[in-house]
Simulated assay, not measured.
Amino acid sequence: MSIHPTAIIEDGAQIDPSVEIGAYAHIGPNVVLKEKVKILSHASVTGHTTVGAETEIHPFAVIGAPPQHNGYKGEPTTLIIGERNKIREHVTMHTGTVQGHGETRVGNDCLFMVGAHVAHDCTVDDRVIMANNATLGGHIHIGESVFLGGLCAIHQFCRIGAFAFLGGGGILTTDIIPYGSAFGNHARLEGLNIVGMKRRGMKRETIHAIRSAYRMLFAEEGTLKERLEDATSLFSEVPEAMTIINFMKADADRPLCLPEK
């Protein structure tokens, strides 16, 4: 274990022998640091927080602080961070609330650039990238491999489907379908995240099928229910297209981010 003599490690913290902790870092009493975690100088990890193996937390990040919620009364809610994440300077991540599901959760292999914020009760899946100062309100679900541009802000309870993209400065109050690409204030759906799909090696025929499903789902003809039924019938053998369809069906009470008419 490599711990700088100026670091503060409170009694009760569970720290793997392979962990590195830099100068003036602070580790709270209910923190668990797994194998090969690196806590750089001046970072703070507090609360009931577990940090997965090989995750790096950079200077002045504050991880596991209490939620910014007036109903929070000090309950032992948690923050669970997965493996191999890079958490850069001034990032903030808060524990959950009893009004939510009591837990904030971050997956594996994510990158949180300078100043990104993950609020209480959020779920961030694997391989998500949040650029500088991207901000999540409470209770948000971010699907795998989503890219959130710098300075974007996402309203509480929003869902962003897997492989979607939200452009820099976007203000989002609705849900983005998987593979969707949205921009603006308030954000509108501008099409599909074709660049992201190609970068991740998706086959050309799969991309064409997703595009066809997208055109059908957001056509002007018929009702949304009818379009969903037609798309389900036509694309039932394309798992990626069905990801979009099932996302749209999953929560009928949530408004969708739509193309501009």
Rank of each mutant, 00 (worst) to 15 (best):
I171R: 03
R105T: 06
K34F: 06
P66I: 12
N30C: 11
R188F: 11
I21F: 08
E56K: 13
T223Y: 00
K225T: 11
T104R: 03
A134G: 01
T46S: 14
R105K: 07
L192H: 03
Q156Y: 06
G161V: 13
G138C: 03
T243E: 15
G150M: 09
E10V: 01
L217R: 01
C158Q: 14
G196F: 03
G196I: 04
R84T: 00
N246P: 10
L217S: 01
I194G: 05
F235N: 00
T92Q: 00
V124G: 07
L111I: 11
K225D: 12
L136R: 07
S18N: 10
D175V: 06
E190G: 13
C110S: 10
K73N: 13
E10F: 03
I171Q: 01
R199W: 05
G100Q: 12
I244Y: 05
H94D: 00
F165C: 05
G107F: 11
P66S: 12
V124K: 04
V118K: 07
K249S: 14
H90K: 00
E75Y: 11
A61R: 15
G82V: 10
G47M: 08
I129E: 07
F247N: 10
P29D: 12
P178W: 11
R204N: 15
N30Y: 02
G149E: 08
H90I: 02
K38G: 08
G180Q: 12
A209S: 04
I160P: 05
L258N: 00
A187R: 00
L224P: 07
H4S: 09
N30D: 06
T173W: 03
G137H: 05
F147H: 13
Y214V: 13
V114K: 10
D126W: 08
H139Q: 05
T55E: 13
E35Y: 09
C257V: 13
E103N: 09
G150C: 07
P178A: 15
V31Y: 02
C152H: 08
P59L: 02
R227D: 12
G180C: 14
F60P: 06
G169C: 07
H101S: 00
H42T: 10
A162E: 04
F60R: 10
L256C: 08
S2E: 14
M197F: 12
H42D: 08
T123I: 09
H26V: 14
E35G: 13
E190C: 12
G100Y: 11
L33I: 04
H26I: 09
T49S: 15
H48N: 15
L148H: 01
M130G: 02
N185A: 07
L166D: 02
S181W: 07
H117L: 13
S145P: 02
S18L: 05
S212K: 15
P178K: 14
T104Y: 03
I176C: 00
S44Q: 13
L256G: 10
V118R: 08
L228I: 11
D230K: 10
I8V: 00
T135I: 10
G28D: 13
S233Y: 04
